[in-house]
Design a protein around this nucleic acid. Structure first.
Lengths: 113, 113
DNA sequence: ATTATATACCTCGAAATCTTAGGTATATAA
DNA sequence: TTATATACCTAAGATTTCGAGGTATATAAT
């Protein structure tokens, strides 16, 4: 275990997935883990034990669809947003943003001393 | 259930508590719930079912100490930071800030279309 | 040849956290 | 006398995440 932020805050993982797919349109699981690492300079890591169940849940909720392809002899399962998924990506992102603003209000408190 | 952000992201509740106590020095549980509502214009609500176990855990970890007083005929349990609690407040706050910056990087992605 | 690393998927048990729903009790306003 | 506000608490259940494991192929290193 290194000093990086190894955990993902509850509720934010699904938003991260939805948002990445809004940006990229089509990604597979392993790619998502690498992309998050790349975007955060290695500071954030999504574990596969969290990612795959989350992907399956989003698919079961009808927010994602999948297409499986074989590339270089290995199977890849590509995920993309459904119509519902696109809407949810927008609304959940703005909810998370609102939450973070409120959290920031608290984190920016200065002791009155 | 209204439209407010009713949930608190995992891992952030303890930081919120520590940070509030850094600001206020001495608070009791009920006061914390009211203060969070006030600071976030009612958008964030900490449920007592989450708060009290979190307070007890922080106390067990040695980050908080308590003093019980009776005010207006009702018992109040005041919490304040220990030395360890002050250090943890600083380090956990900066960790959470770093996490939020990384999260923002992802949320601010613009589709390349 | 073989071992390690990177790629790519997955599941499952344990740990942690939060929600929902209760419980107890006092003071005050309707 | 009933409701609301204050003030503490627990416990069951759901959800989420972590950690550890499993399978398999391609490639680079030894």
């Amino acid at each position: 275990m290194n000093s990086t932020t190894q955990h993902v805050l509850k509720g934010s993982l699904s938003v991260i997935i939805l948002k990445l797919l809004e940006d990229r349109e089509r990604m597979y699981g392993y790619e998502i883990t690498q992309q998050v690492k790349a975007l955060t300079a290695g500071e954030m890591a999504i574990t596969e034990g969290a990612l795959y169940p989350a992907l399956h849940k989003l698919e079961a909720e009808g927010l994602l669809t999948t297409e499986t392809e074989v590339v270089d002899g290995r199977a890849r399962k590509y995920y993309s947003l459904t119509k519902d998924g696109q809407q949810q990506s927008v609304s959940r992102t703005s909810e998370l943003r609102a939450f973070m603003e409120n959290l920031n209000t608290i984190l920016n408190l200065k002791p009155a001393i």
